[in-house]
Design a protein around this nucleic acid. Structure first.
Lengths: 198, 198
DNA sequence: TAATTGACATACATTTCGTACGTCAATTAA
DNA sequence: TTAATTGACGTACGAAATGTATGTCAATTA
């Protein structure tokens, strides 16, 4: 029988989860570089000892946070894409949704700014879910004859890059974000139009 | 008459230039975060005292380095664009050249990774020369009726983002970089094709 | 019940940033 | 020509923050 409440593995998992959650909040609000490990480990009721034991160093923890966020984003995008009436429409909605997601400060700060600075690209391990899924979509569209054949790997990346860059512009504080989002979608529509078989 | 060799202002400018040059090398090779200010100031034959006097802090120095690089890149791109036989061709060559420039480790590391992490976007002050010039090109192409009207600001940014993201992929160490560059250019051609009046 | 593993805390050494202050040469004014 | 002042730059110090080494205690296993 198990000791009263939880098994040991469960408590360990809970510790890891608490650290990741606390780090996620801290990284998102202050940025990776300006976040002290003492601060948010204390906020989680732990010390840096636990952190180094589980994640090795500060970057290891950032990696865990990135993987968690990427998983959530991936699930969200997949759901949006699956709900669309056609593959091409699913592709468009996926791009649009990613654009909206990238407006969340947490994602911009952690994934688009800090992750790239620390790991160069979004790490291959958690190869950006956004890119991978875009590529899959493109492959399907080519198979169906909607999109003319091309190198889906680079193309997916370029679309990802375009959307990412646009999000920084849309997210600028002054002015009308909603209007900028619409303008970005128009521009994106035009660029994507170049992929279609005319 | 001036004291023998150089005036005071010249020596000051030389000091600034030495610091920027040393920092540029250090940032490019080790990254901003892992660069110790003591190390490269010593390499320049100076101390951190000079650095703080001229640039305020580490980020101020990074800003100066960014501005220097952006100016060089801008000049280079302008020359390439001007030499093209037609505006549309100039636009294409500009994109291509930027893609090639982004393959240089110095530019990827400092401009595409660290600058974004520290300043959010490439700082508005030195509003990315690449983006601004792309927008100007687009405006011209629309005026000539080559490109259908659109929001050139976002679109220029998205193209910049696409190219930037592609460069990370092309620059991956393993495999054939040249082949990837060609694939990226093909994909870029397709995306840009969506802008043309058909 | 004894032994061992490992999750986590604590204490310490090291590095690095930023600031305060000092110095000395170059410019300027008398 | 000389005295005064400015400012470029070095030096010394304090404050953090990271990583490591070590210790403890509970939970598993034999």
């Amino acid at each position: 029988m198990q000791p009263q409440r939880r098994t040991r593995a469960e408590m360990i998992e809970e510790t890891r989860a608490k650290l990741v959650a606390a780090a996620r909040i801290a990284f998102a609000s202050q940025g990776f570089a300006h976040t002290s490990m003492d601060d948010f480990t204390a906020a989680a009721g732990l010390t840096r000892g636990a952190l180094y034991h589980h994640f090795g160093n500060k970057e290891g923890l950032l990696l865990a946070v990135i993987e968690q966020i990427e998983a959530e984003v991936g699930d969200h995008l997949q759901a949006v894409s699956d709900a669309a009436p056609s593959p091409w429409e699913g592709f468009r909605r996926r791009c649009r949704t990613y654009l909206e997601l990238a407006l969340e400060p947490e994602i911009r700060r952690i994934i688009l700014q800090d992750a790239r600075a620390i790991f160069g690209d979004v790490p291959q391990a958690a190869q950006s879910v956004g890119i991978a899924a875009l590529q899959t979509s493109l492959d399907g569209l080519i198979a169906e004859g909607v999109v003319a054949p091309l190198h889906t790997n680079v193309t997916a990346r370029m679309i990802y890059g375009a959307v990412t860059e646009a999000s920084f512009w849309i997210a600028e504080p002054e002015g009308d974000q909603e209007a900028r989002l619409e303008q970005a979608l128009e521009g994106l529509e035009r660029l994507l139009g170049g992929l279609l078989i005319h």
